[in-house]
Amino acid sequence: MASLPKRIIKETERLVTDPVPGITAEPHDDNLRYFKVTIEGPAGSPYENGLFHLELYLPDDYPMEAPKVRFLTKIYHPNIDRLGRICLDILKTNWSPALQIRTVLLSVQALLASPNPNDPLANDVAEDWIKNETGAKAKAKEWTSLYAKKE
């Protein structure tokens, strides 16, 4: 009768022993369902050289329900709003219990590499992105160096 399902323990162990390149995820000491996550901005994207902090929470019904992920670092991205909420299908309608923390974080990283302004969450950013892509990317880069500095 474990209050923490075996699956979560296992995923945590694997995240620690066999981490994904460019991604770290550590469970909080008090709550093993709460993870502190960092993602490095993918090379070739405006977010390159940035280190983004996220929080990830596994709800009680996980894996039947998707984990909750949110950016803590400010980021200029059409699919991520001012509060850090992420517009990503697998976190909403396309969630499947066959996915796991690892795959979710990889998808978030992929979203950084290829923003999708046609399915926006931050409307103003998306508009900017469509009208003036180079300008928007420059701004994203600027924000990255401002807020997502590696320590």
Binding site: S3, L4, D29, L32
Partner: peptide, 20 residues
Amino acid sequence: VVSDKIQEDLIVKAETPNQV
């Protein structure tokens, strides 16, 4: 400093429902 070992301990502890 919270070492890896303690994290393991915590994981083990968390298995017992009394922990929380």
